[in-house]
Amino acid sequence: MQIDPIHQFQITNLIPIASVGGHEIAFTNSALYMMIIVAAVSALFIGATTRRAVVPGRLQSIAEVFYEFVAKTVRDSAGTEGMKFFPFVFTLFMFVLFANVIGLIPYSFTVTSQLIITVMLALTVFFLVVGYGFWRHGLHFLNLFVPKGVPIYILPAIVVIEVLSFLTRPVSHSVRLFANMLAGHITLQVFAGFIIMLAGFGVIGMFGAALPLFMVVTLSALELLVAVLQAYVFAILTCIYLNDAIHPGH
């Protein structure tokens, strides 16, 4: 059971709270880690900036670097009007980033390895794009699906493809993050399991276990990269989708 690579994704009810319409609402390990994420992000961006120092300390510097980085990302990919969504994109990026990185701590729980979480986040972005697009541009938002300069006889096919690709966005958006986190954690767990299995085979096994140990160390570094990169990818895709809502005419 210790070596079961799926066990780490198990949701455990810590405190059952209520049952709404046959659905149980409970305080789970997932909920606990979401709260830890909120606490950690708040500690960095609110706790470390209370002094409002003109010459920042280390944590305030980190907070400012993140602020400027996300602001630049939003402005570059969604324009100045996209800065309306800066708080949302910032929250999304920090939530995913902290979920991914906190999940790398051994024995912790990775919130973003739960499909429902990434699906909910991606759907939020999707409906935000659709809602803002129609609110801002009315039916002109549908120009998004009609690229300019396409010959009329292939236009229907193009429109169908555009609509389909638009509708599948939440799927790719959410599954990309979910699958990356899930696969990475399973791989780490499998190699960690090899260490324990080989170490059980006596002295030779102990030497043999050095190989998967090396793999785990290497993969941990890779997974840290993946954790940060996937959070960034999630955020920048959000910016690109929001850009469609702001400028649907391409």
Partner: peptide
Amino acid sequence: NFPSQIFWLVLTFALLFVLM
């Protein structure tokens, strides 16, 4: 497990959004 995850996600994400 979905309902409680959605519930807590909405709660924590909204809280974090407002704080930020």
